[in-house]
Simulated scan of single mutants.
Amino acid sequence: MTETATSGANVKRALDHKVLDGRIIGQEIREAVAREAAELTAVGWPPRLISIVVGDTDAALIYIRNQQRVAEKLGIAFEQRVYPAETTREEMLAAIAALNADPRVTGIIIQRPVPSHLSIKELQSAVHPMKDVEGMHPSSIGNIVYNDLVMGPCTSVAAVEMLKYTGLRLEGLEVVVIGHSEIVGKPIAFLLMSEGATVTVCHHMTRNLQVHSRQADAVFVAVGKPGLVTGAMIKPGAAVIDIGINQIDLPDGSSKVVGDADYESCYEVAGWITPVPGGVGPVTVSILLRNLVTAAKLQKAHYESAFQGGFAPCAPAAAPIH
């Protein structure tokens, strides 16, 4: 059996069970990324991801480790750049501008959170759209409205990918999104609408949340409140895509990571459910690296067009993106 066939079989096994295993689903995406990264490297365009951390790295440490581990496994260069917490706005914007102009850098990710004197929105907006592998530049977010998903927001795209793997027909599907953040909830709603789903977005001001969620064929939740969604709030057979990541303390003094859905009670009712950890998270990293390969392709095409056929593999070292 070929590697691709093996991957397909693994994904089928993952979906034969109601638990949507992000590690298996993400593997299929990563195999394609590895092949494309190797092809780009062979012609002188090796994908390279720069991770920017400002101040304390503890909150983002688990994400950074996962990103670096997966990237290096796929033959993708990953570099972490850590800036002191007191780095000024002007210094950060200058650092991002330098990375934008460096043709050896194909992707930039800004790890959250950033110190309070910095605006994550401003920093993200400063990243060149062709290097915005997070899909969080205003132009990348705005493109979703026009159904342009070249490099969509990683977490949102990953969550919708998980729903697609259930085999449910998205056209006309009744979906409830709980959480309306700019980086997850709202993009998910637009992505689903572009697929023809009927979407209701709920948030902290929504009255009778259970009334909405019980009518849905699929429920997405991303609010940062452990156990918010229970089995009593889910229609039997519905898909539950849990994007929340929360650390809770246990009576014995230890802690564990859980989602926004009460897994045990939702498992009994749902037709499909994503675990936390091991659900949307691994697929998000896979989408991030898929975006990186897409970014490298876009930049390669940009330079080849600029050089009008006079392109050579070493050319990226000479010309920045403007």
Rank of each mutant, 00 (worst) to 15 (best):
Y165T: 14
M233Y: 14
S194V: 02
S213K: 09
H204L: 14
F220W: 04
Q215S: 12
C154D: 03
V240H: 05
L192K: 09
S156D: 03
T155C: 06
D249N: 10
V201H: 12
I243C: 15
K225N: 08
L170D: 10
G278F: 00
G152M: 00
A216R: 00
P277A: 03
D260I: 08
A270N: 01
L228E: 13
L163W: 00
N246R: 03
L173R: 13
H212M: 05
G179W: 01
C202P: 13
Q210G: 12
A232P: 04
H203Y: 14
F220D: 04
G172I: 00
Y263G: 12
V184T: 05
T274H: 06
S213F: 07
G253V: 09
G237A: 12
P187R: 08
G271Y: 06
M233A: 12
V257E: 02
V219D: 04
G227N: 02
V269N: 04
M151Y: 00
E268N: 14
R207F: 13
I183T: 12
L163I: 04
C202N: 01
I178W: 07
V160D: 09
D260G: 10
V175A: 15
I248N: 00
A270Q: 04
T206M: 13
G152K: 08
H180N: 15
M162C: 09
T155R: 03
V257C: 06
G278Q: 00
I178S: 00
T206P: 12
M193A: 07
M233W: 13
G152S: 15
Y263W: 10
V276Q: 02
N246F: 05
P153N: 08
I188V: 14
G244N: 11
L168N: 13
Y267N: 13
R214Y: 09
G179F: 08
K256G: 01
I245E: 03
P277H: 02
Q210C: 06
G172S: 14
V269I: 15
L191F: 01
T230R: 14
T200W: 12
N246V: 10
G227I: 01
V269S: 06
G227K: 10
L191E: 05
I188E: 03
V280C: 13
S254N: 12
Y267Q: 11
I241W: 04
L191C: 08
L250C: 07
V175G: 08
R214L: 15
P236C: 05
C202D: 06
